[in-house]
């Protein structure tokens, strides 16, 4: 399977070239176009049968949908075009074991070797991280595709690193994050416009987004006229 990013980072779409028998699991509604030799199977299970209703419900909590779409190439040389709901970037992350913790709704697609589950990151991060209460947990080996509003940048952290709340797209489970103040004083943190931030510690890869949807909403909201 090969992939190609089209028009990054503003209006990214992903193009997959699949060989016969290869399959990929995508977010519901992500498909833009495809060749005729692909079959689509919609279930609440991951490819290979694990999961089911409970996992589907858990996924809904994290901001993903109950169902998953599995695309399988029945003929050689098939292509599939998928894209995220919002304008923004997509990234590819190759997984060789381990776990990636992904912001709710940022998971776009993955190959069958990756298990998709939901995880809880503790009270403080649930309340203050600016992300959803539950996160998508991707584990196993394979190719993982993430999407988000704005451009996605990645970083190899070894030690400490600070990210503003709401900007996290995904991070490896070898990283730990705490919610803290941006500057030493609480008042200063808020006057500086940063408020609370996520402080990462450990070793691992972090993906973060350049823009956030809530900030766009906050900017546009007051300008909208009531119907």
């Amino acid at each position: 399977m090969r992939h190609q990013m089209l028009c990054p980072p503003a209006a990214t779409a992903l193009r997959f070239e699949l060989e016969q028998g290869e399959s990929i699991t995508c977010e519901v509604g992500a498909m833009i176009a495809m060749t005729s030799g692909l079959t689509v199977e919609t279930t609440s299970k991951s490819r290979g049968g694990s999961g089911g209703i409970i996992k589907g419900l858990k996924r809904m909590f994290s901001g993903e949908s109950f169902f998953l779409n599995h695309f399988t190439a029945q003929l050689p040389d098939q292509s599939l075009l998928i894209g995220p709901t919002l304008l923004g970037d997509c990234v590819h992350h190759s997984m060789r074991g381990g776990t990636m913790i992904v912001q709710g709704s940022s998971w776009l697609a993955s190959t069958p070797g990756i298990e998709i589950d939901t995880t809880w990151q503790g009270f403080s991060s649930a309340l203050f991280s600016g992300e959803s209460m539950f996160w998508v947990k991707c584990s196993g080996g394979g190719e993982l595709y993430l999407s988000s509003y704005g451009a996605i940048h990645s970083l190899e952290i070894d030690g400490d690193y600070t990210i503003d709340t709401g900007h996290i797209v995904a991070f490896e489970d070898t990283l730990k994050f705490n919610i803290g103040k941006a500057s030493r004083s609480l008042i200063g943190s808020f006057l500086g416009g940063e408020g609370l931030v996520c402080k990462f510690h450990g070793q691992g890869k972090l993906y973060y987004q350049s823009h956030t949807l809530p900030s766009l909403g906050a900017l546009l909201g007051p300008k909208l006229k009531a119907k």
């Binding site: 776990t99 913790i101 995880t119 489970d173 070898t174 450990g202």
Partner: peptide, 10 residues
């Protein structure tokens, strides 16, 4: 000790 779960042994 660390990681996302804070239960990972390094």
């Amino acid at each position: 000790l660390g990681g996302a779960s804070n239960r990972m042994v390094f």
